[in-house]
Design a protein around this nucleic acid. Structure first.
Length: 494
RNA sequence: CGGGGCGUAGCGCAGCCUGGUAGCGCAACUGCUUUGGGAGCAGUGGGCCGGGGGUUCAAAUCCUCUCGCCCCGACCA
Protein backbone atom coordinates (compact mmCIF):
# COMPACT_ATOMS: atom_id res chain seq x y z
CA UNK A 1 0.00 0.00 0.00
CA UNK A 2 1.33 3.42 -0.93
CA UNK A 3 1.69 6.25 1.53
CA UNK A 4 -1.22 8.03 -0.07
CA UNK A 5 -3.40 4.95 0.38
CA UNK A 6 -2.30 4.57 3.96
CA UNK A 7 -3.14 8.16 4.65
CA UNK A 8 -6.52 7.73 3.03
CA UNK A 9 -7.21 4.68 5.14
CA UNK A 10 -6.15 6.46 8.31
CA UNK A 11 -8.47 9.31 7.46
CA UNK A 12 -11.35 6.86 7.22
CA UNK A 13 -10.92 5.68 10.81
CA UNK A 14 -13.51 7.76 12.49
CA UNK A 15 -12.99 8.28 16.17
CA UNK A 16 -15.95 9.02 18.39
CA UNK A 17 -14.05 11.87 20.01
CA UNK A 18 -12.59 14.81 18.17
CA UNK A 19 -9.98 16.05 18.51
CA UNK A 20 -7.93 12.97 19.34
CA UNK A 21 -5.64 12.83 22.36
CA UNK A 22 -2.65 13.33 20.14
CA UNK A 23 -4.16 16.32 18.36
CA UNK A 24 -5.23 18.26 21.42
CA UNK A 25 -5.31 16.59 24.80
CA UNK A 26 -7.14 19.31 26.78
CA UNK A 27 -9.91 19.58 24.22
CA UNK A 28 -10.10 15.82 23.95
CA UNK A 29 -10.70 15.74 27.71
CA UNK A 30 -13.54 18.24 27.50
CA UNK A 31 -15.11 16.28 24.66
CA UNK A 32 -14.98 13.01 26.57
CA UNK A 33 -16.72 14.54 29.58
CA UNK A 34 -19.42 15.81 27.25
CA UNK A 35 -19.71 12.67 25.13
CA UNK A 36 -19.97 10.43 28.17
CA UNK A 37 -22.66 12.72 29.56
CA UNK A 38 -20.85 13.14 32.88
CA UNK A 39 -20.97 16.87 33.61
CA UNK A 40 -21.34 20.32 32.14
CA UNK A 41 -20.66 23.90 33.05
CA UNK A 42 -23.24 25.71 35.14
CA UNK A 43 -24.42 29.31 35.13
CA UNK A 44 -22.15 29.83 38.12
CA UNK A 45 -18.62 30.52 37.04
CA UNK A 46 -16.25 27.73 37.97
CA UNK A 47 -18.96 25.42 39.30
CA UNK A 48 -20.17 22.38 37.43
CA UNK A 49 -23.35 20.39 37.09
CA UNK A 50 -22.61 16.72 37.64
CA UNK A 51 -25.03 14.73 35.51
CA UNK A 52 -26.48 11.37 36.58
CA UNK A 53 -23.84 9.24 34.87
CA UNK A 54 -21.00 11.26 36.39
CA UNK A 55 -22.65 11.32 39.78
CA UNK A 56 -23.27 7.58 39.53
CA UNK A 57 -19.52 7.15 39.22
CA UNK A 58 -18.96 9.37 42.25
CA UNK A 59 -21.42 7.24 44.21
CA UNK A 60 -19.43 4.13 43.33
CA UNK A 61 -16.22 5.84 44.40
CA UNK A 62 -17.86 6.92 47.64
CA UNK A 63 -19.08 3.43 48.36
CA UNK A 64 -15.69 1.83 47.75
CA UNK A 65 -13.75 4.43 49.72
CA UNK A 66 -16.26 4.71 52.53
CA UNK A 67 -15.96 0.97 53.14
CA UNK A 68 -12.19 1.22 53.30
CA UNK A 69 -12.33 4.23 55.63
CA UNK A 70 -14.70 2.45 57.98
CA UNK A 71 -12.45 -0.61 57.90
CA UNK A 72 -9.85 1.66 59.50
CA UNK A 73 -12.19 2.42 62.38
CA UNK A 74 -13.09 5.93 61.22
CA UNK A 75 -16.63 7.22 61.84
CA UNK A 76 -18.57 9.55 59.57
CA UNK A 77 -19.94 12.82 60.94
CA UNK A 78 -20.97 16.17 59.53
CA UNK A 79 -19.70 19.66 60.27
CA UNK A 80 -21.09 22.99 59.06
CA UNK A 81 -20.54 24.52 55.64
CA UNK A 82 -19.96 27.94 57.20
CA UNK A 83 -16.91 28.59 59.31
CA UNK A 84 -16.47 31.67 61.50
CA UNK A 85 -13.81 33.91 60.03
CA UNK A 86 -11.91 33.88 63.30
CA UNK A 87 -11.50 30.09 63.09
CA UNK A 88 -9.75 30.27 59.74
CA UNK A 89 -7.39 32.87 61.19
CA UNK A 90 -6.20 30.57 63.95
CA UNK A 91 -3.41 28.73 62.20
CA UNK A 92 -0.93 31.16 60.63
CA UNK A 93 0.26 29.07 57.68
CA UNK A 94 -3.27 27.90 57.07
CA UNK A 95 -4.40 31.52 56.71
CA UNK A 96 -1.65 32.22 54.18
CA UNK A 97 -2.63 29.17 52.22
CA UNK A 98 -6.34 29.70 51.95
CA UNK A 99 -7.15 33.36 52.56
CA UNK A 100 -6.91 34.33 48.90
CA UNK A 101 -9.46 31.80 47.73
CA UNK A 102 -12.24 32.00 50.29
CA UNK A 103 -15.85 32.90 49.55
CA UNK A 104 -17.29 34.91 52.42
CA UNK A 105 -20.87 35.24 53.63
CA UNK A 106 -21.49 38.70 55.01
CA UNK A 107 -25.29 39.15 55.06
CA UNK A 108 -28.30 37.16 56.12
CA UNK A 109 -31.10 38.92 54.27
CA UNK A 110 -31.95 40.31 50.84
CA UNK A 111 -34.12 43.30 50.10
CA UNK A 112 -35.30 45.26 47.08
CA UNK A 113 -32.51 47.40 45.71
CA UNK A 114 -32.82 50.97 44.41
CA UNK A 115 -32.81 49.74 40.80
CA UNK A 116 -35.20 46.87 41.37
CA UNK A 117 -33.86 43.38 41.92
CA UNK A 118 -32.50 42.11 45.21
CA UNK A 119 -29.48 43.31 47.14
CA UNK A 120 -28.01 42.24 50.48
CA UNK A 121 -29.74 44.27 53.14
CA UNK A 122 -27.37 46.79 54.76
CA UNK A 123 -29.27 46.23 58.01
CA UNK A 124 -28.53 42.52 57.90
CA UNK A 125 -24.77 42.47 57.95
CA UNK A 126 -23.24 39.67 60.02
CA UNK A 127 -21.19 40.75 63.00
CA UNK A 128 -18.62 38.13 62.12
CA UNK A 129 -18.38 37.11 58.47
CA UNK A 130 -18.65 33.40 57.75
CA UNK A 131 -16.33 31.63 55.36
CA UNK A 132 -17.62 28.89 53.09
CA UNK A 133 -15.31 26.02 54.05
CA UNK A 134 -12.29 25.59 51.81
CA UNK A 135 -11.45 22.65 54.13
CA UNK A 136 -12.57 21.93 57.67
CA UNK A 137 -9.51 21.55 59.88
CA UNK A 138 -10.42 24.53 62.02
CA UNK A 139 -14.08 23.83 62.64
CA UNK A 140 -13.53 20.13 63.23
CA UNK A 141 -10.62 21.03 65.50
CA UNK A 142 -12.99 23.21 67.48
CA UNK A 143 -15.27 20.22 68.11
CA UNK A 144 -12.37 17.94 68.84
CA UNK A 145 -11.19 20.38 71.49
CA UNK A 146 -14.49 19.86 73.28
CA UNK A 147 -14.62 16.13 72.81
CA UNK A 148 -11.10 15.31 73.91
CA UNK A 149 -10.35 15.51 77.63
CA UNK A 150 -8.28 12.45 78.38
CA UNK A 151 -5.88 10.20 76.53
CA UNK A 152 -8.74 7.73 76.81
CA UNK A 153 -10.69 9.86 74.31
CA UNK A 154 -7.98 9.21 71.74
CA UNK A 155 -7.61 8.31 69.03
CA UNK A 156 -10.56 10.25 67.63
CA UNK A 157 -11.15 9.24 64.02
CA UNK A 158 -13.62 11.30 61.98
CA UNK A 159 -14.55 11.65 58.34
CA UNK A 160 -17.06 13.72 56.47
CA UNK A 161 -18.38 13.61 52.92
CA UNK A 162 -19.19 17.12 51.83
CA UNK A 163 -18.67 19.97 49.39
CA UNK A 164 -16.02 22.63 49.79
CA UNK A 165 -15.31 25.84 47.95
CA UNK A 166 -12.05 27.38 46.81
CA UNK A 167 -12.24 30.41 44.58
CA UNK A 168 -10.02 29.24 41.75
CA UNK A 169 -8.56 31.39 38.99
CA UNK A 170 -8.94 28.79 36.33
CA UNK A 171 -11.33 25.87 36.44
CA UNK A 172 -11.86 22.67 34.48
CA UNK A 173 -14.62 20.12 34.79
CA UNK A 174 -13.77 17.69 37.60
CA UNK A 175 -10.07 18.61 37.66
CA UNK A 176 -10.54 21.96 39.30
CA UNK A 177 -13.88 23.52 40.10
CA UNK A 178 -14.52 26.21 42.66
CA UNK A 179 -16.99 23.99 44.44
CA UNK A 180 -16.14 20.31 44.60
CA UNK A 181 -17.18 17.18 46.43
CA UNK A 182 -14.80 15.21 48.58
CA UNK A 183 -14.28 13.37 51.80
CA UNK A 184 -12.06 14.88 54.41
CA UNK A 185 -10.82 12.74 57.25
CA UNK A 186 -9.57 14.23 60.48
CA UNK A 187 -7.88 12.08 63.08
CA UNK A 188 -6.40 12.98 66.46
CA UNK A 189 -3.82 10.96 68.38
CA UNK A 190 -1.94 10.83 71.62
CA UNK A 191 1.55 10.58 70.15
CA UNK A 192 3.49 11.94 67.21
CA UNK A 193 4.35 8.40 66.12
CA UNK A 194 0.67 7.44 65.92
CA UNK A 195 -0.17 10.48 63.82
CA UNK A 196 2.72 9.86 61.48
CA UNK A 197 1.74 6.23 61.07
CA UNK A 198 -1.86 7.26 60.45
CA UNK A 199 -0.99 9.76 57.74
CA UNK A 200 0.99 7.06 55.96
CA UNK A 201 -1.72 4.47 56.48
CA UNK A 202 -4.50 6.64 55.05
CA UNK A 203 -2.35 7.38 52.02
CA UNK A 204 -2.08 3.66 51.53
CA UNK A 205 -5.86 3.42 51.72
CA UNK A 206 -6.00 5.82 48.78
CA UNK A 207 -3.33 3.88 46.94
CA UNK A 208 -5.35 0.70 47.30
CA UNK A 209 -8.51 2.49 46.17
CA UNK A 210 -6.69 3.58 43.01
CA UNK A 211 -5.15 0.22 42.26
CA UNK A 212 -8.10 -2.00 43.25
CA UNK A 213 -10.96 0.12 41.97
CA UNK A 214 -9.67 2.75 39.54
CA UNK A 215 -7.26 0.30 37.86
CA UNK A 216 -4.64 3.02 38.12
CA UNK A 217 -1.07 2.70 39.24
CA UNK A 218 -0.11 5.97 40.90
CA UNK A 219 3.11 6.96 42.63
CA UNK A 220 3.15 7.51 46.34
CA UNK A 221 5.52 9.72 48.23
CA UNK A 222 6.08 12.83 50.27
CA UNK A 223 5.65 16.37 49.04
CA UNK A 224 8.61 18.71 49.14
CA UNK A 225 8.33 21.63 51.58
CA UNK A 226 7.08 24.08 48.95
CA UNK A 227 4.22 21.79 47.95
CA UNK A 228 3.15 21.00 51.49
CA UNK A 229 -0.37 21.62 52.79
CA UNK A 230 -0.53 24.94 54.68
CA UNK A 231 -0.02 24.04 58.32
CA UNK A 232 1.20 20.48 57.81
CA UNK A 233 4.44 18.91 59.05
CA UNK A 234 4.45 16.25 56.35
CA UNK A 235 2.23 15.99 53.29
CA UNK A 236 1.99 12.66 51.50
CA UNK A 237 0.54 12.37 48.05
CA UNK A 238 -0.85 10.09 45.40
CA UNK A 239 0.61 11.32 42.12
CA UNK A 240 -0.79 9.80 38.99
CA UNK A 241 0.61 10.28 35.52
CA UNK A 242 -1.94 11.15 32.89
CA UNK A 243 -1.67 10.08 29.25
CA UNK A 244 -0.14 13.41 28.29
CA UNK A 245 2.66 12.88 30.80
CA UNK A 246 1.39 15.46 33.26
CA UNK A 247 0.88 14.63 36.89
CA UNK A 248 -2.36 14.77 38.80
CA UNK A 249 -2.31 14.99 42.56
CA UNK A 250 -4.99 12.40 43.09
CA UNK A 251 -5.28 12.39 46.89
CA UNK A 252 -3.32 13.67 49.85
CA UNK A 253 -2.73 12.81 53.48
CA UNK A 254 -1.19 15.20 55.98
CA UNK A 255 0.54 14.79 59.29
CA UNK A 256 -0.39 18.08 60.92
CA UNK A 257 1.76 17.52 63.99
CA UNK A 258 0.49 19.66 66.86
CA UNK A 259 -0.04 22.78 64.74
CA UNK A 260 -3.81 22.57 64.59
CA UNK A 261 -4.13 21.04 68.04
CA UNK A 262 -2.39 24.09 69.42
CA UNK A 263 -4.37 26.61 67.41
CA UNK A 264 -7.69 24.86 68.08
CA UNK A 265 -6.96 23.85 71.67
CA UNK A 266 -7.14 20.07 71.25
CA UNK A 267 -5.49 19.05 74.51
CA UNK A 268 -5.84 16.19 76.93
CA UNK A 269 -4.60 14.90 80.22
CA UNK A 270 -2.02 12.23 79.48
CA UNK A 271 -1.02 9.03 81.15
CA UNK A 272 1.57 11.04 83.03
CA UNK A 273 -1.09 13.35 84.45
CA UNK A 274 0.19 16.33 82.49
CA UNK A 275 -1.61 18.31 79.79
CA UNK A 276 -0.61 17.52 76.20
CA UNK A 277 -1.64 18.68 72.76
CA UNK A 278 -2.99 16.03 70.43
CA UNK A 279 -1.29 15.12 67.16
CA UNK A 280 -3.63 15.32 64.19
CA UNK A 281 -3.86 14.18 60.60
CA UNK A 282 -6.13 15.09 57.72
CA UNK A 283 -6.62 13.33 54.41
CA UNK A 284 -8.84 13.87 51.40
CA UNK A 285 -9.94 12.62 48.02
CA UNK A 286 -12.21 14.62 45.73
CA UNK A 287 -14.26 14.55 42.53
CA UNK A 288 -10.97 15.42 40.89
CA UNK A 289 -10.29 11.69 40.97
CA UNK A 290 -12.89 11.37 38.20
CA UNK A 291 -10.82 13.64 35.98
CA UNK A 292 -7.82 11.44 36.69
CA UNK A 293 -9.76 8.35 35.73
CA UNK A 294 -10.78 9.91 32.43
CA UNK A 295 -7.26 11.08 31.54
CA UNK A 296 -5.76 7.75 32.53
CA UNK A 297 -8.10 5.36 30.79
CA UNK A 298 -9.88 7.31 28.07
CA UNK A 299 -9.13 6.75 24.40
CA UNK A 300 -10.16 8.38 21.14
CA UNK A 301 -13.56 6.72 21.32
CA UNK A 302 -14.31 8.13 24.77
CA UNK A 303 -14.23 6.92 28.30
CA UNK A 304 -13.18 3.52 29.57
CA UNK A 305 -14.71 2.79 32.94
CA UNK A 306 -12.75 0.55 35.29
CA UNK A 307 -15.19 -2.32 35.95
CA UNK A 308 -15.20 -2.21 39.74
CA UNK A 309 -16.46 1.38 39.96
CA UNK A 310 -18.31 1.52 36.65
CA UNK A 311 -21.86 2.70 37.38
CA UNK A 312 -22.96 0.30 34.66
CA UNK A 313 -20.77 -2.77 34.22
CA UNK A 314 -22.80 -4.49 31.53
CA UNK A 315 -25.03 -2.77 28.99
CA UNK A 316 -27.47 -5.00 27.16
CA UNK A 317 -28.38 -3.81 23.69
CA UNK A 318 -31.53 -5.40 22.31
CA UNK A 319 -31.17 -5.57 18.54
CA UNK A 320 -34.78 -5.27 17.52
CA UNK A 321 -36.37 -4.94 14.15
CA UNK A 322 -39.72 -3.53 13.26
CA UNK A 323 -41.46 -6.85 13.59
CA UNK A 324 -43.12 -9.06 16.12
CA UNK A 325 -39.78 -10.35 17.39
CA UNK A 326 -39.01 -7.14 19.30
CA UNK A 327 -41.05 -7.97 22.36
CA UNK A 328 -39.41 -11.39 22.64
CA UNK A 329 -35.92 -9.86 22.34
CA UNK A 330 -36.65 -7.31 25.06
CA UNK A 331 -38.12 -9.95 27.32
CA UNK A 332 -35.00 -12.07 26.72
CA UNK A 333 -32.78 -9.08 27.57
CA UNK A 334 -34.70 -8.50 30.78
CA UNK A 335 -34.29 -12.11 31.78
CA UNK A 336 -30.52 -11.90 31.25
CA UNK A 337 -30.42 -8.62 33.19
CA UNK A 338 -32.23 -10.22 36.11
CA UNK A 339 -29.76 -13.11 36.19
CA UNK A 340 -26.80 -10.74 36.15
CA UNK A 341 -28.31 -8.54 38.82
CA UNK A 342 -28.84 -11.60 41.00
CA UNK A 343 -25.10 -12.23 41.05
CA UNK A 344 -24.32 -8.60 41.88
CA UNK A 345 -23.57 -7.18 38.44
CA UNK A 346 -24.59 -3.59 37.73
CA UNK A 347 -26.48 -4.05 34.50
CA UNK A 348 -28.65 -1.84 32.33
CA UNK A 349 -30.68 -2.41 29.18
CA UNK A 350 -30.70 0.21 26.45
CA UNK A 351 -34.39 0.43 25.61
CA UNK A 352 -34.06 3.68 23.71
CA UNK A 353 -35.39 3.81 20.20
CA UNK A 354 -31.99 4.51 18.75
CA UNK A 355 -30.75 2.28 16.01
CA UNK A 356 -28.41 -0.50 17.05
CA UNK A 357 -25.16 1.20 15.97
CA UNK A 358 -26.10 4.39 17.81
CA UNK A 359 -26.79 2.48 21.01
CA UNK A 360 -23.43 0.82 20.61
CA UNK A 361 -21.53 4.06 20.20
CA UNK A 362 -23.34 5.57 23.11
CA UNK A 363 -22.15 2.68 25.30
CA UNK A 364 -18.63 2.98 23.90
CA UNK A 365 -18.41 6.70 24.64
CA UNK A 366 -19.64 6.12 28.17
CA UNK A 367 -16.97 3.45 28.59
CA UNK A 368 -19.31 0.64 29.66
CA UNK A 369 -16.86 -2.25 30.26
CA UNK A 370 -18.97 -4.96 28.63
CA UNK A 371 -21.59 -4.71 25.93
CA UNK A 372 -24.03 -7.52 25.38
CA UNK A 373 -25.98 -7.71 22.16
CA UNK A 374 -29.05 -9.87 21.84
CA UNK A 375 -31.12 -10.31 18.70
CA UNK A 376 -33.77 -12.60 17.32
CA UNK A 377 -31.40 -15.44 16.42
CA UNK A 378 -29.96 -15.52 19.91
CA UNK A 379 -33.36 -15.68 21.56
CA UNK A 380 -33.92 -18.89 19.59
CA UNK A 381 -30.53 -20.32 20.50
CA UNK A 382 -30.33 -19.16 24.12
CA UNK A 383 -27.15 -17.23 23.29
CA UNK A 384 -25.75 -13.72 23.38
CA UNK A 385 -22.83 -11.75 21.95
CA UNK A 386 -20.52 -9.75 24.19
CA UNK A 387 -17.75 -7.26 23.51
CA UNK A 388 -15.14 -5.70 25.79
CA UNK A 389 -14.78 -1.93 25.71
CA UNK A 390 -11.04 -2.08 26.29
CA UNK A 391 -10.36 -4.47 23.41
CA UNK A 392 -13.04 -3.34 20.97
CA UNK A 393 -14.76 -5.27 18.23
CA UNK A 394 -12.04 -7.91 17.99
CA UNK A 395 -13.17 -9.22 21.38
CA UNK A 396 -16.68 -9.93 20.17
CA UNK A 397 -17.65 -13.35 21.49
CA UNK A 398 -20.73 -15.49 21.19
CA UNK A 399 -21.77 -17.87 23.99
CA UNK A 400 -24.78 -19.17 25.84
CA UNK A 401 -26.42 -17.08 28.54
CA UNK A 402 -25.41 -19.64 31.16
CA UNK A 403 -21.77 -19.47 30.07
CA UNK A 404 -21.82 -15.70 30.19
CA UNK A 405 -23.41 -15.53 33.63
CA UNK A 406 -20.80 -17.99 34.83
CA UNK A 407 -17.86 -16.04 33.44
CA UNK A 408 -18.90 -12.40 33.58
CA UNK A 409 -17.13 -11.70 36.86
CA UNK A 410 -13.86 -13.08 35.64
CA UNK A 411 -14.21 -11.14 32.39
CA UNK A 412 -14.68 -7.94 34.37
CA UNK A 413 -11.64 -8.86 36.46
CA UNK A 414 -9.65 -9.42 33.28
CA UNK A 415 -10.67 -5.98 32.04
CA UNK A 416 -9.59 -4.48 35.35
CA UNK A 417 -6.24 -6.24 35.19
CA UNK A 418 -5.63 -5.19 31.60
CA UNK A 419 -6.49 -1.57 32.36
CA UNK A 420 -4.28 -1.58 35.43
CA UNK A 421 -1.38 -3.04 33.50
CA UNK A 422 -1.73 -0.47 30.74
CA UNK A 423 -1.77 2.35 33.27
CA UNK A 424 1.18 0.90 35.17
CA UNK A 425 3.33 0.22 32.13
CA UNK A 426 2.64 3.63 30.65
CA UNK A 427 3.54 5.63 33.73
CA UNK A 428 6.67 3.59 34.48
CA UNK A 429 7.86 3.91 30.90
CA UNK A 430 7.87 7.68 31.24
CA UNK A 431 10.20 7.99 34.20
CA UNK A 432 13.64 9.21 33.23
CA UNK A 433 16.34 9.22 35.85
CA UNK A 434 18.67 12.21 35.74
CA UNK A 435 21.71 12.70 37.92
CA UNK A 436 22.45 16.33 37.04
CA UNK A 437 20.56 19.52 36.31
CA UNK A 438 21.93 19.48 32.77
CA UNK A 439 20.59 15.98 32.18
CA UNK A 440 17.18 16.99 33.45
CA UNK A 441 17.08 20.07 31.26
CA UNK A 442 18.16 18.04 28.27
CA UNK A 443 15.37 15.57 28.94
CA UNK A 444 12.61 18.18 29.14
CA UNK A 445 13.90 20.04 26.10
CA UNK A 446 14.17 17.05 23.83
CA UNK A 447 11.47 14.63 24.88
CA UNK A 448 8.45 14.16 22.70
CA UNK A 449 6.86 11.99 25.37
CA UNK A 450 6.56 14.05 28.51
CA UNK A 451 6.88 12.32 31.85
CA UNK A 452 8.71 12.72 35.13
CA UNK A 453 12.39 13.35 35.62
CA UNK A 454 13.60 11.52 38.68
CA UNK A 455 16.47 13.46 40.21
CA UNK A 456 18.42 13.35 43.49
CA UNK A 457 16.79 15.52 46.13
CA UNK A 458 20.11 17.32 46.59
CA UNK A 459 19.63 18.92 43.16
CA UNK A 460 16.78 21.02 44.55
CA UNK A 461 19.49 23.26 46.04
CA UNK A 462 20.73 24.05 42.52
CA UNK A 463 19.69 27.61 41.65
CA UNK A 464 20.02 27.15 37.92
CA UNK A 465 17.79 24.11 38.05
CA UNK A 466 15.19 25.95 40.06
CA UNK A 467 15.19 28.88 37.66
CA UNK A 468 14.72 26.48 34.78
CA UNK A 469 11.93 24.75 36.63
CA UNK A 470 10.14 28.01 37.27
CA UNK A 471 10.44 29.18 33.69
CA UNK A 472 9.01 25.94 32.40
CA UNK A 473 6.26 25.27 34.93
CA UNK A 474 8.02 22.17 36.22
CA UNK A 475 7.17 21.29 39.79
CA UNK A 476 8.31 18.70 42.28
CA UNK A 477 5.62 16.07 42.30
CA UNK A 478 6.81 13.91 45.19
CA UNK A 479 9.72 12.15 46.80
CA UNK A 480 8.67 8.56 46.17
CA UNK A 481 8.65 6.21 49.13
CA UNK A 482 10.42 3.58 47.06
CA UNK A 483 13.60 5.67 47.16
CA UNK A 484 13.27 6.56 50.83
CA UNK A 485 13.34 10.29 50.23
CA UNK A 486 16.59 10.36 48.23
CA UNK A 487 14.97 11.11 44.89
CA UNK A 488 12.26 13.46 43.68
CA UNK A 489 9.97 13.42 40.65
CA UNK A 490 9.86 16.62 38.63
CA UNK A 491 7.24 17.20 35.99
CA UNK A 492 4.30 19.23 34.78
CA UNK A 493 1.11 19.01 36.72
CA UNK A 494 -2.60 19.71 36.64
C1' C B 1 -4.83 37.90 37.50
C1' G B 2 -1.36 38.39 32.83
C1' G B 3 -0.89 36.64 27.44
C1' G B 4 -3.54 34.41 23.23
C1' G B 5 -8.12 32.60 20.93
C1' C B 6 -13.49 32.26 20.62
C1' G B 7 -18.96 33.63 21.51
C1' U B 8 -24.15 32.96 15.11
C1' A B 9 -30.13 26.79 16.01
C1' G B 10 -29.08 21.30 20.86
C1' C B 11 -23.65 20.35 18.90
C1' G B 12 -19.80 21.77 15.22
C1' C B 13 -19.07 25.78 11.98
C1' A B 14 -19.51 29.52 7.52
C1' G B 15 -21.02 34.53 6.84
C1' C B 16 -17.91 39.80 9.27
C1' C B 17 -12.53 42.17 5.82
C1' U B 18 -16.00 45.16 1.50
C1' G B 19 -23.10 46.89 6.24
C1' G B 20 -28.76 45.58 2.69
C1' U B 21 -34.31 41.19 6.41
C1' A B 22 -29.59 34.42 8.62
C1' G B 23 -26.86 29.88 6.21
C1' C B 24 -24.33 24.72 6.10
C1' G B 25 -23.38 19.82 8.40
C1' C B 26 -24.83 16.78 12.34
C1' A B 27 -28.73 16.29 15.98
C1' A B 28 -34.32 16.87 16.67
C1' C B 29 -39.48 16.05 14.69
C1' U B 30 -42.94 13.37 10.71
C1' G B 31 -43.41 9.42 7.09
C1' C B 32 -41.58 5.16 4.47
C1' U B 33 -37.55 1.79 3.82
C1' U B 34 -33.70 0.22 7.27
C1' U B 35 -31.28 -1.85 11.96
C1' G B 36 -25.30 -7.30 14.71
C1' G B 37 -19.44 -1.09 14.25
C1' G B 38 -21.81 5.56 13.08
C1' A B 39 -28.30 4.05 7.27
C1' G B 40 -31.27 6.15 2.78
C1' C B 41 -35.05 9.19 0.62
C1' A B 42 -38.73 12.98 1.28
C1' G B 43 -40.58 16.67 4.36
C1' U B 44 -40.83 19.88 9.08
C1' G B 45 -39.57 22.79 13.25
C1' G B 46 -36.09 25.64 15.58
C1' G B 47 -31.79 31.81 16.18
C1' C B 48 -33.21 39.39 20.40
C1' C B 49 -25.86 36.42 15.67
C1' G B 50 -23.40 36.52 24.29
C1' G B 51 -25.24 41.51 26.52
C1' G B 52 -25.35 47.13 26.76
C1' G B 53 -24.29 51.64 24.26
C1' G B 54 -22.99 54.11 19.75
C1' U B 55 -22.23 55.18 14.01
C1' U B 56 -25.81 54.55 9.85
C1' C B 57 -31.67 55.14 5.96
C1' A B 58 -29.97 50.15 7.39
C1' A B 59 -25.48 46.40 11.96
C1' A B 60 -24.16 39.29 12.90
C1' U B 61 -20.88 42.60 9.99
C1' C B 62 -18.04 49.06 11.81
C1' C B 63 -16.78 51.62 16.90
C1' U B 64 -17.02 51.15 22.27
C1' C B 65 -17.90 49.05 26.96
C1' U B 66 -19.14 44.63 29.30
C1' C B 67 -20.08 39.32 30.37
C1' G B 68 -18.87 34.34 29.46
C1' C B 69 -16.02 30.20 27.47
C1' C B 70 -11.32 27.74 25.88
C1' C B 71 -5.86 27.42 25.82
C1' C B 72 -0.87 28.79 27.96
C1' G B 73 1.06 30.80 32.55
C1' A B 74 0.74 32.49 38.00
C1' C B 75 -2.24 30.01 42.26
C1' C B 76 -4.07 25.43 43.80
C1' A B 77 -6.85 19.24 45.15
Amino acid sequence: MSNAQQAAKAAQVRTAITPTREDNFPEWYQSVVKAADMAENSPVRGAMVIKPYGYGLWEQIQRALDDKIKDEGVQNAYFPLLIPLSFISREAEHVDGFAKECAVVTHHRLEKGPEGGLVPSPDAQLEEPLVIRPTSETIIGDSMAKWVQSYRDLPLLLNQWCNVMRWEMRTRLFLRTSEFLWQEGHNAFETAEQAEADARKMLDVYRSLYTDFFAMSPFTGEKTADERFPGAVHTYTIESMMQDGKSLQAATSHNLGQNFAKSCGIKFQGRDGNEHFAHTTSWGLSTRSIGGLIMTHGDDDGLKMPPRIAPIQVMILPITKNDDGAAAVIEYAQKIAAELKAIGIRVSIDLSEQRAPDKMWSAIKKGIPLRVEVGGREVEEGKLTHTRRDLGRDSKTSCTVAEFVGSVKSILDDIHDAMFKASHDFSRSRIVECQTAAQMQEYFETTKELGFAKVPVSLLADDALNTYRKENALTTRCMPFEDEGRMVFIGKAY
